[in-house]
Simulated assay, not measured.
Amino acid sequence: MSRPHALFSFGTLLDEQVQKTLFGGPVPSAFAALAGHTTRPIVITDPEVIATSGLDVHLTLERRLGAEVEGAVLRLTDEDLAAADAYEVDDYVRRRVRLSSGEQAWAYLDARPLRPAARIVVVGDSIAYGRCDPAGGWTGRLAAAHIAADEADHRFFNLAVPGATLADVAEQTPALLAARRPDTLVVAAGINDSALGARPADLAARLDALAATALAHDARLVVVGPLWLDETRTEDAEDTGGLRFTRVQALEVREAYRAWCAAHHVDLLDLWAPLEGRADLFADGLHPTAEGHEEIHRYVVALSKCTTH
């Protein structure tokens, strides 16, 4: 029987009764550890999960530099992995991690990607940089709240550069991460690529490279989708090199990101909705005003249910 999937677990999936219920019996496993993480309790309300595990409080992973969680790698078939997915409640999502041994494996992480984060790096373009907002944009607001929540251990590095493309970000990011030791890499770029004629396959290749970079640094990748834009005014935007931005192009980027993230089990923050149709919240059709960035920040916090609100 082929067992192509490695799944790291530290909780109820290691229980003999749970494995019997989900997989029909014990599955091959071996000791493993996951560095850079600790655990915290989470209350379970799904009656089927409670009945299977016998517990209404499970554990979830949280990021902490220098910590390590011990558990085991389960070797699963396609059917086993599907059963494990069905067992995990909506508070968890399956994501790629790199174990302390260097092996890659699946693990069930907090479904809200910024909630367990401690050290966040943002890479991207002028919108991520916070152009047209003296307060630093939605990322500046997120940084202030994140650091205020735990000044001793939380860090936030905004490395976005106005005018950057996703291609630029994919090329430049690997050299930027080691010194900052991120546990979460937020990528917010792509609209400039669309104006330069990048195809979905081009965007996918650049996201592939960034996913490999994030995993190599034990960071969780979070991809930020493009904003709605007022294409009647984007020609007024500065620092665009004469590029023409359209809503059709932005929607193509949005769909390419959604498809790639779904296929690769990567977190997507879709930021189209908060400013959709709100031309009054744009300084020039492309860059939000301070009020627009505040609206995006509120939306991101609501999506993430961040402890940093």
Rank of each mutant, 00 (worst) to 15 (best):
G136T: 02
A178P: 10
E171V: 15
I147M: 09
I147L: 12
H146E: 11
A128R: 06
Y129P: 02
A167P: 01
P162H: 05
A179S: 11
A179V: 11
T139Q: 07
A170Y: 06
P162R: 07
R181L: 10
C132L: 10
R155K: 12
P162S: 04
A188S: 15
L166S: 10
T165M: 06
G163R: 00
T139K: 05
G163K: 03
Y129M: 02
T173A: 14
G140D: 03
R155Q: 15
A170F: 06
A178I: 02
G140R: 01
H154Y: 02
D183P: 03
A128P: 08
L142D: 00
L185P: 12
L159F: 08
A175W: 03
A144E: 13
D150M: 08
A135M: 14
F157M: 06
L166V: 12
A144Q: 11
V186C: 12
R181V: 14
G140Y: 07
F156C: 05
A148E: 14
A148V: 05
P134K: 12
T139F: 00
A178V: 12
D150A: 13
G137S: 14
A179Q: 15
A167C: 08
L159R: 02
C132G: 03
H146A: 12
R181D: 15
A128T: 02
A160K: 02
P174S: 04
A188K: 07
A178C: 08
Y129I: 02
G140S: 08
G137N: 10
A149W: 11
A160D: 07
Q172K: 12
F156Q: 04
G130S: 01
L176W: 14
W138T: 00
V187P: 09
R141N: 05
C132N: 11
L185D: 09
P134F: 13
E171H: 15
P182G: 02
H146L: 15
A175H: 07
L177F: 05
W138L: 08
D150G: 11
L177S: 01
A144N: 06
R181T: 14
Y129G: 05
V186K: 06
E171L: 15
Q172W: 03
L166K: 10
A149L: 06
G137I: 09
V169D: 05
R180Y: 01
R180V: 03
T165V: 03
G163Q: 05
A145D: 14
T139D: 01
G163I: 04
D183V: 07
Q172V: 04
Y129F: 13
A160Q: 05
G130K: 01
A167R: 15
A145M: 09
A143S: 14
P162L: 01
G136A: 03
A135N: 12
A148G: 04
N158Q: 07
D133Q: 02
L185A: 08
D168L: 00
A188T: 02
A144F: 08
